[in-house]
Nucleic acid binder design. Structure first.
Lengths: 207, 207
DNA sequence: GATCGTTTTGCAGTCACTGCAACTTTGCAG
DNA sequence: CTGCAAAGTTGCAGTGACTGCAAAACGATC
């Protein structure tokens, strides 16, 4: 390996993955998701179709840019907060941190994705279908923090709520991005935190 | 039309749809979801492959038995509760009523689906991807009840939480069906209602 | 620069899903 | 009963996502 700890191979892999992700998002935003074939995406990224599928299990995954490290990273974050922080807070802050990082690293991609998701909101749901593994990791982390058995419903519900919050936030953000995505997610999680039984007043929460 | 208000045509359609749904679930439970082709399903139900796709937009949909009337029906239910019932309660009871009805009508199908979903939990998520339309209906109904503008986050979050609750409940139920599915969903909604900020104690909620 | 492990690639194949243009069935009116 | 229109079914040809496999290209290592 090289001095940086990242070999040429690793660098190339990262670049290829990023190129495929970018190509997918760019082309989909340009002509509409299903008027773009994987063949075109691969061509744009200068690799073969087969290579595309070595990186992403599906076209959907490439559009969202599913990051296999996101799950473990968030789980670590959850466990890293001091014990005084409640499980809910730990989870909430982890989600927000992840989103902030992601937007800092790839804000441009998300602006394009927004265009696509405005036309096809279902893609966002589908993208979450393959993340059962990550959700399990997060749920386990939450369970550990909360001192609950793995079979308890709470951790899974919290994580599922997080997904839902994210989905709703993106949908709203796609319609009107005058508020940052992070804030919208935070708002949604806030509502889940205080409980949905309480109907918000006409002027609470986002308009 | 006939005396019953349901013509021969309508009856045949219902029977075909049901046959396709049953065939899909039965075969998938028997040999595993992706070792069953649409061709086999169509053959089992005695119709052409093309006809399968006239009834269901995808194999996924057929497995879950996506009912196009479920959305409108639940929306109606939500609006039918007296004004003294909170939006949350109205939604919750609608969900539970729907599930109860469904289990009464097709408990056997759900027992088979359970087998499939145990192997492939992602199918449940994917099945919800196509229900954006229904979710919109429900969210609008909730918004009306709550007197909130359509752009408010609350109704969409509540509906998304419902989906999440259902998904988690089915997953748990698939692992251990000593508790009824309805109760599990109710429990999950209860948690969402009171708020996730409060960490449940080691012995609250389902184990 | 020979060797070994990893990644890329092409290829052949399967299967979900679509549009279209017959064809059949049902509902209804005369 | 008959004929006609509307609705439903079917086959067919085509597209495109995705997979397994085996060969080739490439990068790391000695």
């Amino acid at each position: 390996m090289n001095q940086s700890g990242e070999s040429l191979r690793d660098r190339k892999k990262r670049r290829t993955r990023a190129a495929l992700e970018r190509a997918t998002v760019r082309l989909a935003a340009e002509r509409g998701y299903d008027h773009v074939t994987v063949e075109e995406i691969a061509a744009e990224a200068d690799v073969s179709v087969r290579t595309f599928f070595n990186y992403f299990a599906s076209k959907d995954e490439a559009l969202i840019g599913a990051d296999p490290e996101a799950g473990p990273r968030m789980a670590e974050r959850i466990l890293a907060f001091p014990g005084t922080v409640t499980p809910f807070e730990a989870y909430r802050r982890s989600v927000l941190a992840e989103i902030t990082d992601e937007l800092n690293n790839a804000r441009d991609l998300w602006l394009l994705r927004k265009e696509v998701l405005m036309q096809r909101p279902d893609l966002l749901v589908r993208a979450f279908a393959n993340s059962a593994e990550s959700e399990q990791l997060l749920a386990d982390a939450v369970a550990r923090r909360a001192g609950l058995p793995e079979t308890h419903a709470y951790p899974r519900l919290l994580v599922a709520a997080g997904s839902a919050a994210f989905r709703c936030a993106v949908t709203r953000w796609a319609r009107d991005d005058s508020v940052s995505l992070g804030e919208l997610v935070d708002e949604a999680l806030e509502l889940f935190g205080t409980g949905l039984a309480h109907t918000p007043g006409r002027h609470e929460g986002g308009s």
